[in-house]
């Protein structure tokens, strides 16, 4: 990882990719997200931190409407992607998820070959006109996920046969293969060992050059290492949102400070 001090990190652009306005989420009777307003910038890594059950994963899943698959979940408020409301009735959630890719907590490669895992999205969305183009997409995606050298000789081997860290990088390759604009990562390193975690973190830093990345993490160090912006959630509220350096060194809210210094959580 680069050892830049937190304050030195700069944000490449100031374009707003996703804007959330007064978002409320209910799971049945429980109010999981309360009036959250946040603006996620393009080509930036944004980290969501907070204690378990604070709603950070729920909010992440709102950004590509994965919560639609849960029957009792209701989302209110506006979430704009490039200025368009993704909860508008004209928006097809299936199309949206192709634009806003997701990487899950536990590596979940499909029980298919490595090649087919990566080719899955491009095939569904018809991104390749022929086999050569598909091969190219697969190679490019695997390279972007920094796993090409490890698997290039065994693309026909099952994806489930890889190690945990390799599986997670395969899942990232699978997600970038559909050319998303935003990549959501829900605790992508929680099932990985420190070495695999370091590899994935390095990868996240590289992905920043092309995508807007949102990462949910329980590890404060990880948030500090990989992100430029950090949002702190507590009990369904967005307590503080700002540049990572500021959040970690000079938080405005006393709850943020308590959490970062380990007094609550």
């Amino acid at each position: 990882m680069n050892d830049m001090t937190l304050m030195d990190k700069t944000v490449d652009t100031q374009n707003i990719k996703i804007a959330a306005r007064d978002v409320n989420v209910h799971y049945g009777d429980s109010h999981a997200i309360k009036d959250v307003n946040v603006e996620i910038e393009d080509k930036t890594v944004t980290a969501f931190i907070g204690p378990s059950g604070c709603g950070k994963s729920t909010f992440l899943r709102c950004l590509n409407r994965m919560n639609d698959t849960i029957g009792i979940c209701r989302v209110k408020g506006d979430i704009l992607l490039d200025g368009e409301d993704i909860y508008d009735r004209r928006v097809d959630p299936v199309q949206l998820r192709a634009k806003v890719g997701m990487v899950f907590q536990k590596p979940n490669p499909f029980p298919k070959s490595i090649y087919d895992n990566v080719a899955y999205g491009p095939r569904i969305h018809g991104l390749a006109r022929n086999k050569a183009e598909l091969d190219e997409i697969v190679e490019k995606s695997l390279r972007r996920a920094a796993i090409w050298d490890e698997v290039k000789d065994r693309l026909d081997a099952p994806g489930t046969g890889l190690s945990g860290g390799q599986q997670q990088r395969l899942c990232i390759a699978r997600a970038v293969a559909t050319e998303p604009e935003v990549l959501l990562m829900d605790e992508p390193c929680s099932a990985l060992d420190p070495i695999a975690t370091a590899q994935v973190e390095e990868l996240i830093d590289e992905l920043r050059s092309r995508y807007s990345v949102v990462i949910v993490t329980h590890s404060m160090q990880q948030a500090a290492r990989v992100s430029q912006k950090t949002a702190f959630f507590h009990l369904g509220n967005l307590v503080e949102f700002g540049p990572t350096g500021q959040i970690f060194t000079n938080p405005e809210d006393s709850r943020t400070e308590s959490y970062i210094t380990g007094r609550i959580g």
Binding site: T69, V94, R97, R174
Partner: peptide, 27 residues
């Protein structure tokens, strides 16, 4: 079949029947 398989497929923008046909059924 683990829910993670379905989530993975839906998260890539697959529809339900595509997920069933290409991920759940093979598994």
């Amino acid at each position: 079949v683990p829910q993670a398989m379905r989530d993975g497929s839906l998260g890539l923008g697959a529809t339900k029947s595509e997920t069933v046909r290409q991920v759940v059924m093979p598994a």
